[in-house]
């Protein structure tokens, strides 16, 4: 039985199709990433899977429970860390945990023991009796993760878990998430628009754009799909550079503002050939770089856009979704 199975899940808000017939299955113990720009439909997907939002069409089950027919079964099986903070700042960390434990009907003795263990796991036991409003962003996130785990869910949903955190805190959180997955075997589904986050954490990634899944595989396999290493050539005359690249070992050529991006296997061996070829044709080179492909390149490859340039406008779209969802 898969941990999550979604079949043609769809959600529309008026004329807008936020999630468009997406299907996937996630196996137990997997870390699965939904990667895409803001407004792509990630949070809407999570909301439907967590029974917060009714799908317009399609079906899904979590831990064997249908999201429409057995909401309580689904709710008991999942823990969620929402994109926006959902702590009560006027309560202490311990009280927030205790409130959660009572809502999930965990009996007193076990509740206290679990709270102590989890607060230790996320390194908050020293501050557990301080009001949450005195906490930093990273501490709040850790507390939310600990809270999400209190009722021993089979599946943990993390919606943009490291949004707005500094790099160091982000690294710490990644370690926590990896440890959770390894030690407790908990299935994790996370949404992110950080490429490195998806790359580092996820066993499999679904790239989602305009409500649909456009590619789904392991990060490595996705990166392999774009044809090996990425060579970026900056030149005063990029058209000429692009025109002169006709060698059979070039898998893919692309123009990106003022530069030419090539994909090829074993790029290091081909660099001398590229340089001598360009020099012999009298085409200038400003700079040349070689790197391993990232998921950013994969996203660009499939959508023709960079995920980063989406972020500003994507946020507005997300707000719109949010308002229409009410």
């Amino acid at each position: 039985m898969p941990a999550i199975a979604a079949e043609n899940l769809t959600r529309t808000f008026g004329d807008l199709t936020a999630v468009d017939r997406i299907s996937f299955t996630i196996e137990e113990g997997e870390i699965f990433g939904l990667l895409g720009p803001n407004g792509a439909g990630k949070t809407t997907t999570i909301s439907m899977l967590s029974t917060m939002l009714r799908p317009t069409a399609g079906k899904a089950s979590i831990n064997g429970y249908d999201i429409l027919r057995d909401q309580d079964g689904v709710r008991t099986s999942i823990g969620i860390v929402f994109q926006d903070q959902s702590l009560d700042e006027e309560l202490t960390a311990y009280e927030n945990m205790d409130f959660h434990g009572r809502l999930y009907r965990i009996p007193g003795e076990r509740r206290r023991a679990k709270i102590a263990g989890l607060l230790a796991l996320v390194g908050l036991q020293d501050r557990q009796h301080d009001l949450v409003k005195t906490y930093s962003g990273g501490m709040r996130r850790r507390l939310e993760i600990a809270r999400g785990l209190l009722h021993e869910p089979k599946v943990l949903f993390l919606d943009e878990p490291t949004l707005g955190l500094d790099p160091q805190t982000r690294n710490h959180l990644w370690e926590y998430i990896e440890r959770l997955n390894e030690e407790k075997g908990i299935t994790i589904i996370l949404t992110t628009h950080y490429m490195e986050e998806a790359d580092r954490l996820c066993d499999r990634v679904a790239i989602i754009d305009h409500g649909g899944i456009i590619a789904m595989d392991t990060p490595q396999a996705l990166k392999n799909q774009i044809g090996g290493d990425v060579v970026t050539i900056h030149s005063p005359d990029p058209d000429a550079v692009a025109g002169s690249m006709d060698a059979p070992w070039i898998a893919h050529i692309e123009r990106r503002d003022g530069s030419v991006v090539l994909s090829m296997q074993d790029a290091e061996q081909h660099i001398p050939g590229i340089v001598t070829g360009l020099v012999s044709r009298d085409i200038g080179i400003t700079s040349l770089s070689v790197r391993k492909p990232t998921l950013e390149d994969v996203f660009l490859h499939f959508t023709g856009r960079s995920i980063r340039e989406e972020t500003a406008s994507g946020r507005d779209v997300m707000r719109l979704y949010h308002r229409m969802g009410r």
């Binding site: 029974t51 929402f82 903070q85 959902s86 700042e89 959660h100 809502l103």
Partner: peptide, 13 residues
């Protein structure tokens, strides 16, 4: 607005 309601609404109650 501060998100806490979500925590309550997503619980099996």
């Amino acid at each position: 607005q501060f998100g806490f309601l979500k925590e309550t609404l997503v619980a099996p109650i």
